[in-house]
Structures are given as C-alpha cells and as structure tokens.
Amino acid sequence: MTDQNAPDHDAPAPVPAPFAVPAAPAQKSPMQKALPGLLIAGSLGGVGLVMVSLLSLAPPVDDGSGPRPVAAPQDVPTTVQMQNAGAFILPPTVGPGGKNKPLTPARLDAPPPLAAVPVVPAIPKARTKTAKARPTRIKIPKIKVNSAIGGVTVSKKGRLGTPPLSRPNQTGWYRLSPVPGEVGPAIINGHVSTRKGPAVFDRLRELAKGDQIYVYRSDGKVTRFTVSGIEQASKSSFPTKRVYGNTNDSQLRLITCGGVYNRTTHHYTDNIVVYATLSKKKG
C-alpha cells in the first residue's frame, strides 16, 4: 500500500522561471515606521510600572548600609521590665535575715557571710580515733529548739540523708563533716514538717544575724555559734561550695526545707541554710 502523502521521487523537479524579478515593496508612512518602536516602548513602560507597584508593597529590608536609628530613652520601665527586674541579679553575699524580711539566695560564687561577732580559735582534733567526739544536742533559744543529734550520711545518689520521719524532733549531723567546734563547716539538718505537723526546724527561717546556737559534744565541750547570715535557695541551684567548702575557722551550717511543697514528688522546692561561726567554747 502506497502512502499518498509521501513525495514522488520519480517526478522531475520544477524549474523556476528564468530571470524572475521580485516585486518592489510598497513605501511606508512615517507612522508605520515609528509604530514598532512605540509598541516596544509602551510594553517596557507597562512592565516598569508593574515593578514599581510591586516594590512599593514589599517590606523594607535592612542591609546594614544605612544609618542606624537611635532608640529613644525610656524613663518609665515597661511591665515586662518591672517583672524581670532583679530576676538574674543576685546579691553578692548572703543576707542577714530578720523579722518580716524575705529570704533570698546569693550568687553561687559568693562566699559565706562574714562573722557577726569576733570568732574564737577552733577546738583541735583529738589525737586518737577512739577519743573522737561527736555532737549530741543542739539548742537554739530564739526558736525554742532543744534537740538530740543523730548521725546522717550520703546516699548512693549523692543526697544528704535526714533523720527518720518517725523522729520529727531529732536533727542529723553529717558524719563526714567536721565535729562542731573543729575547723571547717559542720553540717546539721532537720525536717521542717512531717504529715503529723511541724518538725524540729519549722521556725529555722526566723533566725537572723546575731542569734545564738549551742551545740553540745560527747567530750563534754559546749560550743556557741553566732548566726552570720541566712538564705533560701532553690534545690536545683544549691550553693554547694558555699555550704560545704573548706574554711579557716570553725563554722556551722543548719539546713532544712523551704519554698513550695510538691505533693506529687513529696519534696519542697527550696532549702533554707543558716550560716554561723564559732564565737565561744567551754569545757
């Protein structure tokens, strides 16, 4: 079957007429000559107008090349500024505490507070292990504390132990800390409350600089410490170095819970820490 649209290769090619002369083009008017240029100019003008309109709607972009605006001074702080005022500025030292004064934490790098009264030399350590003394009782006249002292250690998770809840009026001495009266910070803690009610250190937050604390020892010596400062710090940012760091004299730390009680975890959010220095000894 033959494709009727295919070229016929057997037919001779057509021969153009000899000496054919093309017809001359007709003459254009001046308007016809200028029309293409006008059309192109009109098109470019329309495109330019559209681009100008779009740029006017776009947000300004600061490329850093222009002059910087100067912010006007604000004499009156905004609400947010007032709420955040002092949020990240902690005192450079532990506060003295006192009646109706809120307890606040100091900077983590702040040292223990300075002694409220002249300090006395520490009690030398016993030369023999069998003669090692231990604290037996603590008395704090201002808040009516008269408590026996037991021993506490640190758990596997690094948490300082506390006296048993079955003995809410007992305090605990950290056995790896110095004996009260010796060089260094002696640590004694106690509960602020139990499910049955207030515990031994329920009123610890009432102490203030200058108040006196008495610790009795098994070797018959009695030590008197004078409060130099008190703070309430979050447990998530506990001032470990300030509380447990070495000192050149005899100091005492009393610790209990404070802040808000979390009924889910059964823990308080903060700790209250009392700092005191040895001011008298006898026996």
Results as ranks from 00 to 15, higher is better:
P67M: 03
V119Q: 14
A85P: 00
P92Q: 12
P7I: 00
T136F: 02
L38N: 01
P14T: 03
A110R: 00
A122Q: 04
A11E: 07
S29D: 13
A72W: 03
G48W: 02
S53R: 06
G95K: 04
F88H: 13
R137G: 00
T78R: 10
Q32A: 08
T130M: 05
P59T: 11
A20F: 08
Q81V: 05
F19E: 12
K142L: 08
A71I: 07
A11C: 01
R127M: 14
R107V: 08
G46R: 02
P96Y: 09
A106Y: 05
S65G: 14
P69L: 06
A110I: 04
L108M: 07
A34D: 04
P73A: 15
P25N: 05
R134Q: 10
S43V: 01
P36C: 05
V117M: 05
P113H: 06
L35N: 03
L35H: 05
Q74S: 10
T79A: 15
Q27R: 11
L54Y: 08
P14S: 06
V21L: 13
L114V: 11
L57C: 10
P118T: 09
V70R: 09
I140P: 00
G66Y: 02
L57T: 14
V61A: 14
K33L: 09
T130C: 06
S56E: 03
N84Y: 08
K132N: 11
Q74D: 09
G37R: 03
D10K: 13
P67W: 01
G98P: 07
P59D: 13
N84Q: 13
A23S: 12
D8T: 04
I89P: 01
S65F: 11
D109W: 08
P102K: 10
G97S: 01
L44N: 09
V52G: 15
A72L: 14
P141F: 03
L38P: 00
G86V: 06
K101C: 02
P77I: 03
A116V: 02
P141C: 01
A110E: 02
